[in-house]
């Protein structure tokens, strides 16, 4: 029997909510103090488990929004319509409450600070969350790997991490482009989805060193990943994370 990876069992652990930041009308960041957290890579996620007073339990996976700096773990949760767990996390959970989590999970959609090649991050909506962890890790490690974020949002009020992104984009190594799909703020003439022309103008050109990370709703990721492959990017260098249904008729 060959085993190619360290196989460590993930156990549930308790965390305490130390801070909550409202990011948009439907998304909030939850800061958890997790004394037993083993650390994580940017891009990984964790499972949150809720237990109702009658013992009923529900769990969901959430991308980690923060870089591991040895203290806390931050989640950004977008309220899903009728979401069983997200409705509680966004609407009910308060500072001082406890949550059970386990993780970190995922060894593919990750960025390691020792890697030096350029990184292209492309996020749609709350798909920006694991990409934000990568940018924060990039800053924390003082990485000089060139990084670009293309962030597709409906309108200016949909932007998560507005102030943090501005701060991060002040670095010479980080470039930030917002894409507004419904309504652009004054001074931003372009309204529309990411297309081939925009990728050619704003994203890194294909190269052997580049790694591209795409995260968002399934139709967004399908479209962007197809555009990247059509533009000559090696599919093996495009890492994706999708959420939600394929769209179209149900």
């Amino acid at each position: 029997m060959e085993r190619t990876a360290v196989r460590r069992r993930l156990t549930w652990q308790a965390g305490t909510v130390t801070e909550i930041r409202e990011e948009t009308a439907t998304a909030r960041t939850i800061v958890l103090d997790l004394p037993d957290w083993p650390g994580h890579l940017a891009g990984q996620h964790l499972d949150v488990r809720l237990t109702a007073p009658d013992g009923y339990r529900a769990s969901r996976s959430y991308s980690i929004a923060s870089a591991w700096t040895g203290t806390t773990v931050e989640l950004t949760v977008e309220q899903v319509p009728d979401g069983e767990v997200s409705s509680y996390l966004v609407g009910v959970l308060g500072v001082g409450d406890q949550l059970e989590v386990r993780g970190p999970v995922g060894g593919w959609f990750v960025w390691r600070p020792e890697s030096t090649g350029p990184i292209q991050l492309i996020g749609g909506g709350s798909g920006v969350v694991p990409l934000m962890a990568m940018l924060r890790q990039h800053a924390h490690a003082s990485s000089t790997a060139p990084a670009r974020l293309l962030y597709s949002v409906r309108r200016a009020t949909s932007v998560i991490y507005r102030e943090d992104l501005k701060t991060l984009a002040a670095s010479d190594d980080v470039d930030l482009t917002f894409v507004y799909t419904r309504e652009a703020p004054p001074g931003e003439p372009r309204v529309g989805r990411i297309d081939a022309e925009l990728l050619a103008a704003k994203a890194f050109a294909p190269s052997d060193e580049l790694t591209t990370y795409v995260c968002g709703p399934t139709p967004f990721v399908e479209t962007v990943a197809d555009l990247l492959v059509a533009a000559g990017h090696d599919p093996a260098r495009v890492r994706t994370e999708r959420f939600g249904p394929t769209g179209g008729p149900r």
Binding site: R57, A58, S59, E84, W108, F109, T218, E222, A225, D226, L228, V229, P235, A236, V238, R239, T240, R242, F243, G244, P245, T246, R250
Partner: peptide, 18 residues
């Protein structure tokens, strides 16, 4: 255990769709 019901057909893939 731990599953919820969906009528959609979500997608999980690690890269572009071949």
């Amino acid at each position: 255990p731990g599953q919820y019901l969906t009528r959609d057909f979500p997608v999980l893939s690690a890269g572009p769709t071949p």
